[in-house]
Amino acid sequence: MNGSQEQRHIYYDRDLEIEAYQLSGIVQKFPNHFHEYYVIGFIEGGKRHLWCKGQEYDLNAGDLILFNPRDNHYCAPIGGELLDYRAVNIQSGVMLEIAKEITGKDYTPYFTKNVIYQSEIALSVAEVYEAILMDMSKLKKEEALFYLIEQILQEYSVPFEKIEKTGPNKQTKMLCQYMEQHFSENITLDDLASMIGAGKSYLLRSFTKEIGVSPYRYLQTIRIERAKALLEEGIGPIDVAGMTGFSDQSHFTNYFKEFIGLTPKQYQRIFTDA
């Protein structure tokens, strides 16, 4: 299947404040990265090899995928098979509101599994996607979304506070904070190494082990996440490229499509189109 037969769609629903995401006929690899939001998706067709937080999975049609914010992951096709994939992307604030409505208390969900093979919950994801795509009534969309989240909270979620997560050490946290604050600048490995008084080789090994992605991937992921927010505000891709530290629009477009699956302009249209 050639590029003209690929289907890449994201729909933003203003009632639910979530994204419905579809990739169809895709052979593209996705690099090691993470998102700042929850992802609930499923394989509709094709096969994929997924790496997530040090674990590997072979995915087939009907398999459910759950990513917490900052769960690092990457994937590649198996045997050249084309990927058909649907998902809903839910910002943390929206997820917290839904979880509180369902549980009656402040609840920060943490998905305990990243992959559930042949899950019936995939049908509920498809129902939410179709409700958004068909622009059904707000009642119908909310009902479908709440039903989906309730299923996952009951079966595959615990309060975030109950997860034993030591987190990165003080030095690594400092490096992350620095890159998040200076993402538009030309940060070098020497800059980062000098901050913690360590060699570059040690920095690369320790950072990647604790965060799950290399310093370069971390910086590029932060840049892409910031770029998405600027595009959603209506700022042009050329300006966004400069504001987020990319050398030119061509590099920005290539990286954005590699991470998101869409060009910056395609992504922006879901917020600017009527």
Rank of each mutant, 00 (worst) to 15 (best):
G62E: 04
P77V: 12
P69F: 08
N72P: 15
I65T: 07
Q55R: 09
Q55A: 15
Q91W: 11
L66W: 03
Q55G: 02
I65C: 08
D58Q: 12
D71E: 06
C52K: 00
L83D: 04
L64Y: 03
V94C: 10
R48L: 14
Q55T: 09
E97F: 04
I78T: 08
A76K: 15
L66S: 06
Y57G: 03
R86P: 03
N89G: 06
E97N: 13
R48S: 04
Y57W: 08
M95L: 13
A87N: 01
T103A: 10
G62W: 04
D84C: 07
G93Y: 09
L59D: 05
H73F: 12
I90V: 15
G80V: 10
I98L: 15
N72D: 13
P69N: 04
N72V: 15
V94M: 13
W51N: 10
G93T: 11
L59H: 03
I102A: 05
K105Y: 07
H49R: 12
E97R: 14
A76L: 14
I78L: 15
R70Y: 15
A99I: 06
D63F: 11
I78R: 06
I98F: 12
S92W: 03
K53Q: 09
I102G: 02
C75D: 13
D63H: 02
G93C: 06
F67V: 00
N60W: 00
C52P: 00
E56N: 13
K100D: 04
A76G: 09
F67G: 00
Q55V: 08
N89F: 14
K100M: 06
I102P: 00
N60P: 00
I90Q: 04
C52T: 04
F67C: 07
R86K: 15
C52W: 01
L66T: 06
T103W: 02
Q91P: 05
I102E: 01
R86A: 10
I65F: 04
I90N: 03
Y57P: 02
G93S: 14
P69S: 04
Y85C: 10
A99R: 01
R86I: 14
A61F: 07
E81T: 15
A99C: 13
L83M: 14
G93E: 13
D58W: 01
T103D: 05
P69C: 08
V94F: 07
M95T: 08
N60V: 09
C75N: 10
H73T: 03
A87F: 08
D84Y: 10
D84W: 03
K105I: 10
N89W: 12
I90E: 03
I65S: 04
G54C: 05
Q91T: 09
N72F: 14
E81R: 05
I65E: 08
G80D: 04
D71I: 04
I90C: 09
A61C: 10
L50I: 05
I98T: 05
Y85N: 05
Q91E: 15
K105C: 09
P77I: 08
H49M: 08
N72S: 14
V94Y: 07
G104S: 08
A87P: 01
G62H: 01
V94G: 07
I90Y: 05
C75F: 14
I90T: 07
P77K: 04
T103K: 09
E56Q: 12
L50F: 07
P69T: 06
N72A: 11
P69E: 02
M95C: 11
I90A: 10
D106K: 08
N72W: 12
K53D: 09
L64T: 05
R70S: 13
A61E: 11
D58Y: 10
